[in-house]
Amino acid sequence: MKKFGMQAVALLLLACAAGLPAWAVLGQPVQSVEADRAHLKGQIRLIQRQGYSVQRIAAADGGIVREFVSPDGIVFGVAWSGPAAPDLHQLLGAYFSAFQKAARQTQTLRRRRGPLAVQVDGLVVEVGGHMRAYHGRAYVENLIPSNVNQAVVQ
């Protein structure tokens, strides 16, 4: 039993080292918020709102990440601000590659240099700010509780 326990710990460490928990927060169960907290070396505060809740992570670098959770425990939105560029691979999880692809397509004609908004298959990502102060938000339209407006994700 003890040996099994050691193996489990070793496996867990290996999984962490390999990045296997895969962060994956947007669209995932509320438990995945913990992965973000650990990655950001932050502290979580839970805030209850009408029809949803907010997990507010105060990161060690002064940044703030807010994760918006539906009553059935799914993260439907995330908003961030802070001095470092956001790690959207972590915050967007399974939606990251869709965002990355869409962000690339916005630049086929360089009509615009500034804040970026991407909408693809119900995923909305808005990134903005500037060097030393970044901010933005993302949400998945069909995951937003029916009585909640997307504008709360900020």
């Binding site: 560029a85 959207l88 967007l92 990251f96 360089r110 990134v127």
Partner: peptide, 19 residues
Amino acid sequence: PAACTNSGLPPNDTVQSLG
């Protein structure tokens, strides 16, 4: 490295992409 590309944003590493 991944820590740089994890913003998900496109690279501007040519005259064409940077403008």
